[in-house]
Amino acid sequence: MLEQHRPVLDEVAQRHGVDAATVVAVWGVESNFGQTFGSYPLVQSLATLSCQGRRQGFFRGELFAALRILQAGHVPPERLRGSWAGAFGHTQFMPTTYERLAVDFDGDGRRDLIDSVPDALASTANFLARAGWKDGLPWGFEVRLPEGFSTEGQGRKLRQPMARWRDLGLRRADGAPLPELDAPAGLMTPAGPQGPAFLVTKNFDAIYSYNAAESYGLAIAHLADRLRGAGPFVTPWPTDDAGLSRAERRELQQLLAARGHDIGAIDGLLGERSRAAIRAERGRLFGERAPDGRAGQKLLRTLRAEALLAAPESPPAEAPISR
């Protein structure tokens, strides 16, 4: 797809300042390059979510936006299908995102993210550009941490100048010195200090804004690197403590909230408050001197067992009365 649509992608990059590999990586992750749009009628899905569930106000706004898209004639009604939650098209825009950021790149008078690949690719680049993407700046890169380096208190939002990271002993994963970048970067260790570590710039935040999950952002960033010819991560991912599904992350948040941690919404998205609670619990439960914010099966199982032990016993059932 990168080569098939090279002329369009080159023009998109010139107009919006986002490179072809990044745009195509979003396309690949979101719809397998146009093969998986979702089969739900968007109006029906959004109408249902407008009346049921905990985010009715949000989905009501998306429903009205979908109706406006149909009214303007950008997409035929029978073609407006997508995910159960309302995202649609090659790169899975929500209707209100479409209204703000979709572009008519092919010049046919319609902003069609379903049947026009040029419109979809250009709209994706426009999204990233408006999210703060800086042309020529890498999203980040894998690094090697010095022996005994503490990751406590670190995170992608806590950026420091590259010179500071050099002074702390960090190097590229292949052992090379850190690049001379005039941009601050934050340290991200999604699998804990024993797994791959990354210095990430504001361009990673632009990818992250597409779907607020570090694993999602890293998938797109890494796929873009592979499309440019780079190799796989150098540090292997830890296998002794598997990660969590979305449902398990929600369960973990419930257990953390039950212990008195203020983590915000129980949504399965592990933000800064959830990570802080995880660090506190890992320190308490496992005696880690510099606990990280990784959520794994070990922590979930331990908190489950604690909650079970703390639960009050059920009163014995009353004997039936003979009549």
Rank of each mutant, 00 (worst) to 15 (best):
L113G: 04
P179F: 08
F105Y: 15
G61L: 01
F64H: 10
R164G: 06
A65C: 10
R159W: 00
T151A: 12
A185I: 03
I114W: 09
T189E: 13
T91Y: 01
P161Y: 01
G155F: 07
R79S: 14
G148W: 13
G140S: 07
G195C: 13
R164D: 09
L170E: 10
Q160R: 15
L187G: 10
L113C: 05
E62T: 00
L121K: 05
G82K: 00
G153H: 12
M188S: 12
T124D: 01
R130A: 15
P177Q: 10
A173W: 02
R111N: 07
F93A: 06
D115F: 06
L178A: 13
A87M: 08
M94I: 15
L168N: 09
T97I: 09
A129P: 03
G169N: 14
V117M: 14
R111M: 07
V75D: 03
D112S: 06
A131Y: 05
T96C: 03
L121Q: 07
R171E: 14
G186Y: 06
G109D: 11
A163L: 11
A102W: 06
E62C: 01
A120H: 08
F141Q: 05
G148N: 14
K134W: 04
A66P: 07
A125P: 07
L145N: 15
G132L: 12
N126A: 14
E180I: 02
A85V: 14
R130C: 10
P177K: 11
A185G: 04
A72K: 13
A163E: 15
V75Y: 00
E147L: 13
G192V: 07
R172K: 14
P118R: 11
F64E: 14
R68Y: 00
P77D: 06
F93K: 02
Q194S: 13
Q71F: 05
Q194A: 14
S116V: 10
S83F: 05
L70T: 09
P146M: 12
A120Q: 08
L181K: 00
V103I: 05
A85Q: 06
E152R: 15
W133S: 07
